[in-house]
Simulated scan of single mutants.
Amino acid sequence: MSYSAIPKTYAAAFADASSSPEEAEQELDSIVGIFRVEPLFRNFFDTPAVKREEKEAVLLKTFQGKVSDLTLNFLQVLLRRGRFSFLSEIHDALKEELDRKAGRVRAKVRSYPLLSEAELSKLREVLKERFKSEFILEVKEDPSLIGGFVVRFQDLAIDGSMKNQLRKVRQTLLDSKLPVGVVYEN
C-alpha cells in the first residue's frame, strides 16, 4: 500500500462504517482542529516514547462521551495500528470522499482584490455549468496576482490573473524577432 493510499483507505472505511458520514466528518473535523491548536496534545500522540496504552487512556479520557462511539473506536484503531499520524490526511481524504459521493468539488480561489459575494456566486454558476458539479469555494486574497483570480481544483487551474496576462505579453514580446537590419528612429 502506498503512502498516499493509507489515508484514502481509512477514510473510505470510516465513511462506509458510519450511518451518518457527514456527522462523522464534523466530529473528525473538531478533533483535527484540537490537534492543530494544541501542539502539545498532538506531540503527546506523536512521541514514540509514550506507550500506546497511555495514549489510548488519554484518548478515552479526552473524547469519551464527547464524540460518537464509532469515531472513538476509529481513533483507537488508528492508534493501535500506528496510523494516528495520518489523522489529518485521513480527514482530508474523508472530505474528498464525501464530496465525490455528493457531486461536490472543493476549489481554492485566490484573487485580488477579494471577490464580492455576487462575483463568487457568478463564478460558482460558471464552474457548475462547465464541470457539472457543485463547487465549494475557499477564497483567499493574494495581492501578488496584481488583479484577477486563480481557481484550483483537482488537477486543474484556471488562471485569469493580471500577473499571468502580463507574463504572457512579456513572453510574446521575447519570442517575437525583429527582422535583421531594421532600425527604429524617433
Rank of each mutant, 00 (worst) to 15 (best):
L78C: 07
G147D: 05
A13P: 07
E134T: 03
F45W: 11
L78V: 09
S111W: 08
S116H: 04
R170C: 09
V182M: 10
Q154R: 15
R124C: 06
I158W: 09
G147R: 00
L59C: 02
G103I: 01
E89S: 10
I31P: 01
Y184A: 12
R52P: 09
K55V: 01
L156E: 15
Q64V: 05
E96R: 08
R110M: 01
A57C: 04
V180Y: 09
E56H: 02
L70P: 07
L120H: 02
A15R: 04
L40H: 12
S18F: 01
A157W: 06
S111H: 03
N73F: 02
L174P: 02
I31K: 01
E119D: 06
F74Q: 01
K66S: 12
K140D: 13
D142F: 11
M162Q: 08
I6N: 00
S68N: 07
L87S: 08
A12M: 12
N186D: 13
L174Y: 10
V67E: 00
R100P: 00
F149Q: 00
S18R: 00
V105K: 03
L120C: 12
L98R: 09
I136E: 15
A13N: 11
K61H: 14
V182G: 07
L70N: 07
L59I: 06
V109Y: 03
F14I: 11
E96P: 04
E56T: 00
L123V: 00
V182N: 06
V50Q: 05
E54K: 14
N164M: 05
S161G: 02
S19L: 09
E96Q: 06
P39T: 00
Q64S: 15
S88A: 12
S68D: 06
L70T: 04
G148R: 04
D142A: 09
F153V: 01
V105A: 05
P21V: 03
K66P: 09
V150R: 06
F131K: 01
L178S: 10
E185H: 09
S88Y: 10
Q171C: 07
V139H: 10
T71W: 10
E89Y: 12
A107L: 04
V151I: 12
K177D: 02
P113E: 08
G147K: 00
F74L: 01
E138I: 05
N186M: 11
D92W: 10
V183Q: 11
Q76A: 11
G147Q: 03
S133G: 04
S144A: 12
P48Q: 02
I136P: 12
Q171G: 04
S4E: 12
I34M: 12
N73L: 03
A93S: 13
S68V: 04
V50C: 05
V32H: 13
H91G: 08
L94Y: 08
I34K: 08
S20Q: 14
L173Y: 12
E129D: 08
D69E: 13
K163L: 13
K168V: 15
G33R: 00
I136K: 15
A118Y: 04
P179I: 03
F41W: 13
L156R: 14
R80M: 00
L114Q: 06
E117K: 01
D69I: 05
R80W: 03
R36D: 15
G65T: 07
R81Y: 14
L120W: 01
Q154T: 07
S111Y: 08
I146F: 08
R106Y: 04
K122D: 09
S18E: 01
S68K: 14
R83V: 08
A13G: 12
L79K: 01
G65Y: 11
